[in-house]
Every structure is written in C-alpha cells, then in structure tokens.
Nucleic acid binder design. Structure first.
Lengths: 235, 235
DNA sequence: CGGCCGATTGATGGACATCAATGGGAGTGG
DNA sequence: CCACTCCCATTGATGTCCATCAATCGGCCG
C-alpha cells in the first residue's frame, strides 16, 4: 500500500517529488481497527504515529469524577498523534470513534525524514500546530460561547475540514458520531446537547440526524456560529 | 545581551555547546514593553518570535459579542509565540499582562537553527507541543471541572511551571494578574471568579490576594484541583 | 424475543451569569 | 495635600442556562 498517497501533499506545493515519496515510504503498514478501540493510552511511551485514512478518531481525557472531555475529532487525512514524535508519550488517550483504517509511521522513519528535509520537518511541525490552533478555538467555544453556538461552530469546523478532503459540501456531510460524543466534545451533558440539536433543527440552521449533518443555508449557519476559518490555516 | 542564556537549556542536556550557543545567538535584540501593550495582533503576518524574559504575557481571542478568552498565560522562560514560525501568522492576539522584557528571535534566525541542527529543531518543536498540551488541559478544565476546581487547577499549574524557573516554592508565588484576567482565562465572570477565590480562601486551600498566591497545604490543593503534572512534560 | 444503546422528553435543581452598588487603593491634577 | 478619577475587588439580589434525575421509545443485534 505504500504506493498510495496518504498525505494530502497536494496542499503543500513546496514539497519536492523526492520529499513526497519519502513521506509515503515512511509508512510501515496500514491497519484496520474497530470502533471504540483505544489506540493510545495516556502516558504510555510511544514509538509510532498514526495517520487516519478512513473513519473517525477522537482524542480524549477522562477526569477523576468520571467525565470525559473530547479534545479533538479527526477526519481522514489527519495526522492524529504526530505530536507523539517530539513528546514521546501523550498526555491524553486516542480512540477510534468508528471503524477506521490507519497508516502507521514509526518515529524512527519520521526522524529520518527530518534528517533529510528541513522543509518536510517544517510541514510536519506546522501540521501539529494547526491541531493546536483547533484546540484553542475549542477553548474559545467552551469558554465563551453558548451551547447552541458551540455545537453549530463545531459543525462548521468539521464541514470546512471535511470539504477540504472531499467529504462535505455546502449542504452537509456524514458525521458518524453519537450525541454523547458531541456532548463530550462540547463540554455539555448529552441531554442538553440533544435539546440544542433539536433547537438548531427547529431554527432550520442545521439538522444533525441519522449520523448526518444537513445544512439548509451555510451562510446563515456560519453567521450564527461566529465561524471564521482563519484558525484552520487553509493557506 | 547575547552573552546571556535566554533559554532554560539546562533542561535539555542533549544539546551540544554549539547548539546552545547558536540558540543564544539567534536573539536579535531585547526589548521592554509596558503592561497591556499588544505584541501581536490576530492574523498579521509575522517575521519574528518572542521569548519572555521578565514579567507575564497572555495570549487571547476576542469574540464577536465582546468576550475575551485567554488561551495561555506565559511566565519568564516561555517561548510565547514560537508557533508563529511554522504558521507565519497567529489566529489569536498576544499582549503583555505586566511590564515585560522580551528577547526577539527573527524567523530567519530560527530557520538557520533548524538547518544546522535537527536536534535543536526537535527541541523547539517539542516546546510548541507542550504549549498545546497545556491548551488541552485548559480545555478539560473549562469543559469538565467546576469553577473552584478550575481556578485551583490553574494555580497549581502556574506554581509548578514557576517553580521550575525558580519563581515559586511550595508556599506560593507572585501572580501579578487581576481577577478579571483570571476570569477570562477560566471562562467565568469576574464576579463568580471573585466568589470562588473567596471560597478557596475560606476553605484554606489557596489564598490569592495582593497579586500573590499563598498556599497553605500544597498536597491538599493538588488533591482538590485534580492536578497532575504529566501534561507539562517536565521529563 | 429480550437486552442494550442512543435519542428523546419532562420535571426539577443548582451553578454560574447578570445587574447593581459600594469600597479601597493608586495615580493625577489642582 | 486633598479632591477626583479610575480600576479592581467585593457583595447582594435576582435570573437563567445548563445539569441532574427519571422515564419512555426505537432500532439493532445476539
């Protein structure tokens, strides 16, 4: 499977063909993992990274009192835990949200990439920082936005990211996560999440049902959600 | 001033003397900036990074409805916006919380460092990722912890980080920020923040007053705050 | 068919927000 | 040296958003 292009490298026209090839060759193997499987457990020393090629993955942290905070939702094309390369371990866990297919990059292979190409290194570094920018936007959402806006904002973000990899258009996208997941991502209870989802539906802003997000009027949703793509660094 | 060691490189014994020197030589100049001065505005193209050498800096984002979410608090020794190097711009703003002294690193100088030393590159990369880990812990705090615990947790974090640079001990530390800042960092209103600060004081867990955090029993505070240093990657 | 999970809805409670006012300390100008 | 102002801390009263508790329903699967 190493003949296949795992990374959306067309987004990075500055990469040379050699760099592109090296990147694809860094994949040790491809693996399928069933939904809910925990890929990485908090604190465990790691020696490889995961690129998601199919399905959804989330990163999360459990608190002492039994709550779960989802820190990130990943879509195909995302380097889920590239930050484990410089950090050596993660301070959170990683799990498959749905059945997934992943490409495994040994840390050693990434190290070799960084040795041959500062350019590629910067690309990878940048990728981990865009993840961090998304973390910060979620911080703004949870800290300063109302429940309904928070949910709408997340839908906008996921739509924008998924559109980028051809999995969404202005009318919506498949989102195979539960309302419980959505609640854990937005810092709300499942019950209140359900009510807010209903409210957004009633207001005809966005309809999340049957694992699918349907958008009636994207501009109106974006306006409601106070959404600005800037933090996704699509440039 | 380039003879002075700006980075806490003793924390990274793997660096060679040459690397250490190169890092220190990458400083273009040192500058003083008064409290409240905005160092970086959201979205503006950047060509340099800032290392904080004295005082406090915060990173924040203003929302449409006039709220401010503080995304990070920085203490001396922190590379405040190193992520602007791979990202070229920031999606948030950066401001001096107090009067500060900063060391300026041109992106070009950082680029040269990355060309001569993959080792150093990884150190810098790692530094930006630890910042991201802190972002995520704040996400857990705001999303899943009560107001009082949230505040206590932030005090624990700052204490641990400041102890590392000799600015705190088990009994407390100077924290020259206002309750309004604390509120904006924790996603609470200043009024409720004030009540929680008082409650923490009454419970003799931690006393934040007169720009100083006084801790009676650190173990008890850590326990109350559900604080675990793991995410700070002190290893 | 029974059991389980996720979605849904109602009733109630509580944590935190909002509104409003006072007080104190620091800086400024008369 | 004393008003005056401004910012920050503080407190009370009230309101509301979201949490909690509890129950039902539907679909899926063994």
């Amino acid at each position: 499977m190493t003949t296949r292009s795992f990374l959306m490298t067309h987004r990075h026209p500055r990469l040379t063909d050699a760099e592109r090839t090296a990147l694809n060759n860094a994949v040790a193997h491809v693996r399928e993992v069933p939904a809910r499987h925990v890929l990485v457990r908090e604190g465990v020393p790691l020696s490889q990274c995961t690129l998601l090629t199919r399905g959804f993955i989330h990163r999360y942290k459990d608190t002492q009192d039994g709550r779960r905070q989802i820190l990130a939702l990943h879509i195909p094309g995302d380097f889920v835990d590239l930050h484990s390369y410089p950090l050596k371990r993660l301070e959170h866990s990683v799990a498959a949200t749905t059945d997934v297919e992943i490409a495994v990059f040994p840390h050693q292979a990434i190290r070799e990439l960084t040795l041959i190409s500062p350019n590629l290194t910067e690309l990878l570094w940048r990728s981990t920082l865009i993840d961090a920018a998304i973390n910060r936007e979620w911080l703004v959402s949870i800290g300063a936005r109302s429940a309904a806006v928070r949910i709408a904002h997340l839908f906008c973000e996921l739509r924008a990211r998924m559109e980028r990899v051809g999995m969404a258009d202005e009318h919506g996208f498949e989102l195979p996560i539960t309302q419980v997941d959505l609640a854990d991502a937005t810092g709300l209870t499942p019950v209140h999440t359900n009510r807010m989802v209903r409210q957004l539906r009633d207001q005809k802003l966005v309809d999340f049902r049957d694992r699918r997000v349907v958008i009636h009027d994207l501009d109106r949703l974006i306006d409601f959600a106070q959404f600005d793509t800037g933090y996704l660094f699509f440039d």
